[in-house]
Amino acid sequence: MVTEEQISIDSVEIPFHAGETIMQAAYNAGIYIPHLCYRPGLSVHGSCRMCLVHVNGHEKAACTTPAATGQQIGNCSEALRQQRLLLIKMLFVEGNHICPACEQSGRCELQALAYDLGMTAPDLPHFQPKRTVDASHQEVNIDHNRCIACAQCVRAGDEIDGSHAFALSGRGIQTRLIPNAPSGRFADTAIHASDAAVAACPVGTLLPKHRGFNIPIGQRIYDRKPIHKLAMEKGYIHHDDTAGKS
């Protein structure tokens, strides 16, 4: 018999198995810790930092920190909400996220989490970078304006279907998503709309064509319930309007 070890999240004792991270333990216990780059089934990235928690008083990323017996973890404090709020605002600052005009509105995790954290409007000076849209592919658009560099598509392409369809290129604020094609054109990759790499995108960067507004805004997955509730429901699939409908 395996002895169960425990960590405490906001004074709730939850079990974990050796080798698990705080995020995994919380997930298994049905406790939501905000995240954008973490996805069960993909390798851990640890880049978005939305899962910032207090571990024995120190800030750590829940997705990269191994769970260890005796950890006192804070997840829901006002201080953390403020820190996470600034983090998510920074993602809006660096890209061009025009939620009211975005096809992904209501099924975008960035938007859903921003609402969840109490962000109602952009209130910081934005970079407004010049970014492009690659509409060359028959089935899928890449809209670089919306990319948050979470590398979910990169990891899905590397780890699930081995397509190596994407990579993050460049450095610093110039970091950008590139398709694996010398021409630089998305059309020249072997990717399909049904590939894991496309489905992995939590925002509207990789957007399947030919289905625009198939579900009206207002009736989409994150329009129905806040993401912190939905994400812990049975059968939840991120940004899938048909999944987990209760």
Binding site: S47, M90, G172
Partner: peptide
């Protein structure tokens, strides 16, 4: 900045 994580990149 390598650009990997949000706080440092942005």
């Amino acid at each position: 900045s390598c650009g990997f994580c949000t706080p440092c990149r942005v």
